[in-house]
Design a protein around this nucleic acid. Structure first.
Lengths: 154, 154
DNA sequence: GCATAATAGTTATGTGCATAACTAACGTGT
DNA sequence: ACACGTTAGTTATGCACATAACTATTATGC
């Protein structure tokens, strides 16, 4: 691949990251959330209480990031951290009522953002998008080895 | 659009951002660069010296970010800042010889990264990708109004 | 039982990004 | 000529991310 095309792609990914995050930030701001925090709330809403290590895995970010995010969301009253009975090292994170309500609002915003994002694209392309983006992500993913175990069917 | 699809899309964009940036970071680290800085070098390599306001526009980030990035790249000896003769407020940023050499190395990495990123995708999809990503970006771009002026042909 | 490795989490530090508030210079009124 | 808004850039501060170094607990060797 020549540099022109390579740069077009890398730059496009970089700009999409910046703008999508900025747009998310402006939508989440009225709720008192910063981008990244919504992912944590949604994960808890989807899969129930879990320990921080699991959150780290689910969110795709490192444990120190989870420590800070949980601390802020806890200060905001949206989540609660309780010691795990079976493992004194771990702490179980769960949504509070406030957090559950907030997650519902986030879901609304999330749909609006997704629709806004793909506006003007043919439905066929929109349908393929998540799979394509996942392929790109896996290709550059340095966390997992190379194949999570052959479960690549989307 | 239901939440499932919306979340799949938003999450995919978020994860791609994280992983692509992380991969870029690991490739740029040996050159002593952090992700984001390569964009500044490449922009200067492509369009020659320019003032920081133009860099801000080209990179898609805010002036304070440009201030810090230029400061660090200048400390590294990769760029030089000179007062603009026609405008005492502005400072012209240009590559040093070291910066030019570094930009060439970055170009190599950039091609490798792009190839790695699209690995396994059909050529047809790869060809469409930059346009698709640009559409997504424009859709959520809060900087430009809505249409830059009708120059939407890609 | 006990040393040792692995795991959960935190703290410290550094980066790119953002916004808000500020200074300095430019431009354009009247 | 001078007030006023605009623009270029910086500083201060805050956030999500990262890595490195650390503590506390659990698991595993022998």
């Amino acid at each position: 691949m020549d540099f022109e095309h390579a740069d077009a792609l890398n730059q496009a990914i970089r700009l999409l990251s910046l703008r999508h995050r900025a747009r998310a930030a402006s939508l989440l701001a009225p709720l008192g959330l910063h981008p990244g925090q919504e992912a944590l709330l949604l994960e808890l809403a989807r899969n129930g209480p879990m320990i921080q290590a699991q959150l780290s895995e689910a969110l795709g970010c490192e444990p120190p990031s989870v420590t800070l995010m949980t601390r802020k969301l806890e200060a905001g009253g949206h989540i609660r951290r309780a010691p795990a009975p079976s493992d004194k090292r771990a702490s179980i994170v769960e949504l509070t009522d406030s957090g559950r309500a907030l997650a519902e609002q986030v879901k609304q915003l999330w749909c609006a953002l997704a629709e806004e994002t793909v506006e003007g694209l043919p439905a066929e392309t929109v349908a393929e998008l998540p799979g394509i983006l996942k392929t790109l992500t896996d290709n550059v993913d340095t966390r997992r080895p190379r194949h999570p175990g052959g479960a690549g069917t989307v």
